[in-house]
Nucleic acid binder design. Structure first.
Lengths: 233, 233
DNA sequence: GCCTGTTATTTTGCATTCATTTTTTCAAAG
DNA sequence: CTTTGAAAAAATGAATGCAAAATAACAGGC
């Protein structure tokens, strides 16, 4: 490799640098669109995924669509029956239980990792959202409360600083997005107070950077959330 | 359907019966073959994945191959560069660190769940493999030790009774399989003794069904394994 | 009238083909 | 001799076409 070549590299290296993370957009667009289309419930649970209709819907040929379907099947959003096409995967109560537990485990991990590396600024942001959530709780504003709640859990996962964890978590979250469990809490006011107390404990453990403890609290918190969802299902 | 046909069905009905759970094999075969082909290191790290060559290698057309490639990309084994084909994803030290942590988190979860539902028979099996491993340790039989070690971690994940967890864990394990970290322990005899003591603690916590405690031990155990692998890398 | 057996239509899976883009080759200029 | 530019070759991404399978529609028998 000549020195001159190294000079030119300086100019061009920026391109692969900025293109390094965003793998770029190929038929990614289609994949995202299709995923949203399914997640948003445009297709009934367990319903056949009509190839031809979707081709017209997205103005593409069958080849890229089928490729996208294979990916969605790998993600667990749909299932592919040989020679029988794709079906929207319907989650059994058992599936949902499993997903809750795994997400609980991942959040527990996120909490532990966050304690190791979270900055004061990141903690301050979580703390701020927490207090905001508390105000929503006092006002009995369910919508605002859940918005903050989601944000906090998301911030903890982000604070873990582990892209693999975040991606894995997002993948599982996408699977159960079709199941609406958020509003279930509405039926159980006691649970709401309990959840709020758990969140106090979460913030406290995070403040003390007590990773192992926070890990425990988060898992139990998710377990309780799961129980509440099941009870009101 | 004639009675005669029913007679023959008796013979054949076993096939769909046992194929009920395994969604069946379509181009799954190709997917598995391709995955193994890459995992087993037939392609260099970061190397281009030659479509044409693989088509000949597996005697298929480009369409099913490209579908399989999309799935492998979703699994994180390869990466797809737009208009520039697929490349074997090479894991940075950071990627490996992340993978170790997530797998540690999942094993911690597996331990916790296992404590909730493991049967005496399952525990007995783990205990037996543990003792077998200890004998390998005393004999300084590295190969046998690692075999048992892998088996124990696998049995704990299985004992968790969570298919989603098992699948997620397997997916991450597949990504890292290309990186050989097993033999790294060989360079650090002290670590070996430490690992053995940690396994004693694991078995003890599992015996007492101390989920939270086992969860902690398993995560730290994986962390130490990671550190040892890094140090000898 | 309901069920069985056959035929027609649709749909899936894969191969082939085509337009673009990228990479390589080659040659001429500096 | 290196470097730049253009043209050829190859590879990628997507569309179409075709054989096999599945589903639907239909006719005949109990």
């Amino acid at each position: 490799m000549s020195e001159l070549f190294l000079d030119t590299i300086d100019e061009q290296s920026r391109v692969p640098a900025e293109a390094a993370k965003p793998v770029a957009s190929l038929h990614e667009g289609l994949l995202v669109a299709l995923r949203d289309f399914i997640v948003e419930g445009n297709l009934a649970d367990g319903a056949r995924v009509p190839e031809r209709a979707l081709c017209e819907r997205f103005n593409i040929s069958r080849t890229p669509l089928r490729e996208a379907l294979k990916v969605l099947a790998a993600e667990g959003l749909i299932e592919l029956l040989p020679n029988r096409g794709a079906r929207v995967r319907q989650l059994s109560p058992e599936d949902i239980r499993e997903l809750f537990d795994v997400m609980g485990g991942l959040e527990a991990l996120a909490g532990r990792l966050a304690c190791e590396r979270i900055s004061e600024a990141e903690f301050a942001e979580i703390e701020q959202v927490h207090h905001e959530m508390y105000r929503f709780y006092l006002r009995r504003d369910m919508h605002g409360y859940f918005h903050c709640n989601q944000a906090i859990h998301q911030l903890i996962v982000a604070a873990a600083g582990n892209a693999t964890l975040a991606a894995t978590y997002a993948g599982l979250a996408g699977r159960i997005r079709r199941v609406r469990y958020s509003a279930n809490l509405a039926k159980d006011r006691d649970r709401w107070g309990e959840a709020m107390r758990e969140h106090e404990a979460i913030l406290d453990a995070l403040r003390r950077r007590a990773g192992s403890e926070l890990s425990d609290i988060l898992f139990v918190h998710l377990r309780n959330k799961q129980k509440a969802a099941q009870a009101s299902a």
